[in-house]
């Protein structure tokens, strides 16, 4: 009996001290932070996280430990996020348009509003890509071909209901053409199909231009301004199409994470984003940096959701 009481006392003591320790987030982070990528290793979500990894360590003196929880196009990870411990030491990558489109297709175990995003740190802009020896020299060539041969212009892209797919639908609408979108599993496979001339063009990303320099040509990029790495490639806007889109990436935390930690995390990611060396590396890979911090997150998502939902409904991806 006495032993039990002692044990209980010890348990209470340990519990309370650990709680005090957990409350003291003045020095967040004071242990390694677990960064979960809801996709497999080697993809672009993984690579951007790997870019952040050394800078996080350098600036905040703690490791950023990357692990993977792939499945269901990210849905497996996101549906479990809010069940995880909200102490700031578990964070997860989030992607647009995935977290907007997926929950509206079918029940995937989370809603867009459930995801407590703290920062959107970059996006890979959509781009229309052709091979270096393609007869299409300008965007107008593509539009002309598509007008003459409705439906015969095949374009590869990564998945359905994705940034590539929605860009294709929106562009077809704006340009008044009909093209055929061929979905592949991931950007890597979509590029392979383009390089092997299985398709005539690809809805890809600016990063494709960086990775396969010399073998592909970007005809236009879906950005506000030209990409610093591709100063000669026009934006869709310049050519008269209001298309600014891409795959946006950010970081979210479990819902139970306290406000001060969320704000702090948001600040820290901003700090990494501001580092000139980090910017150089990201832009060299063809990414575009973005700074949507914790307080702007909701407004940003709402604005994006409007556009994406419209395009996805048009595509029949959402009923």
């Amino acid at each position: 009996m006495k032993l039990m009481r002692l044990a209980a006392l010890a348990a209470v003591l340990i519990l309370s001290t650990s709680m005090v320790l957990a409350m003291g987030h003045g020095s967040y982070p004071d242990k390694p932070v677990n960064y979960i990528i809801p996709f497999g290793p080697g993809g672009e979500s993984d690579i951007t996280a790997r870019h952040q990894q050394p800078f996080f360590k350098k600036m905040f003196n703690e490791d950023l430990v990357i692990s993977y929880k792939p499945g269901g196009g990210g849905a497996v990870g996101w549906s479990q996020l809010n069940g995880m411990k909200g102490d700031g030491y578990t964070i997860m990558g989030i992607n647009l348009p995935h977290i907007i489109v997926k929950p509206r297709q079918k029940d995937v175990g989370f809603a867009t509003e459930d995801i407590a995003g703290v920062y959107m740190f970059h996006y890979t802009p959509d781009a229309l890509v052709v091979t270096a020896d393609s007869p299409f020299k300008t965007l107008q060539d593509v539009i002309d071909y598509a007008k003459e041969n409705p439906g015969k212009l095949t374009l590869s892209g990564s998945g359905k209901g994705t940034a590539n797919h929605l860009a294709q639908i929106r562009f077809d609408q704006m340009a008044g053409v009909k093209t055929t979108y061929v979905a592949f599993k991931g950007t890597g496979k979509a590029v392979t199909a383009l390089l092997g001339s299985q398709v005539k063009a690809e809805w890809g990303y600016t990063s494709v231009g960086a990775k396969h320099e010399g073998k592909v040509r970007l005809l236009a990029v879906a950005m506000e301004k030209r990409h610093p790495k591709f100063p000669d490639v026009p934006t869709f806007k310049e050519l008269g199409f209001d298309l600014v889109s891409g795959a946006y990436r950010g970081i979210a935390v479990p819902k139970s994470t306290p406000e001060p930690i969320r704000a702090k995390l948001s600040e820290q990611i901003a700090q990494i984003n501001a580092d000139p060396e980090f910017r150089r590396r990201m832009e060299n890979d063809g990414m575009a940096l973005l700074d949507v911090d914790y307080k702007d997150y909701k407004g940003f998502i709402d604005a994006q959701a409007k556009v994406y939902i419209e395009a996805a409904t048009e595509a029949g991806v959402i009923r």
């Binding site: 792939p70 499945g71 269901g72 196009g73 849905a75 497996v76 549906s79 997926k102 297709q105 079918k106 029940d107 995937v108 175990g109 998945g159 359905k160 209901g161 994705t162 979905a183 592949f184 599993k185 991806v317």
Partner: peptide
């Protein structure tokens, strides 16, 4: 689970366990 290219959810019968295939 979620189809790899068409992104449709198949044969999960509402269960989230099967979502990842």
């Amino acid at each position: 689970g979620v189809a790899e290219i068409s992104a449709d959810v198949r044969f999960t019968f509402g269960s989230q366990v099967l979502l990842g295939g």
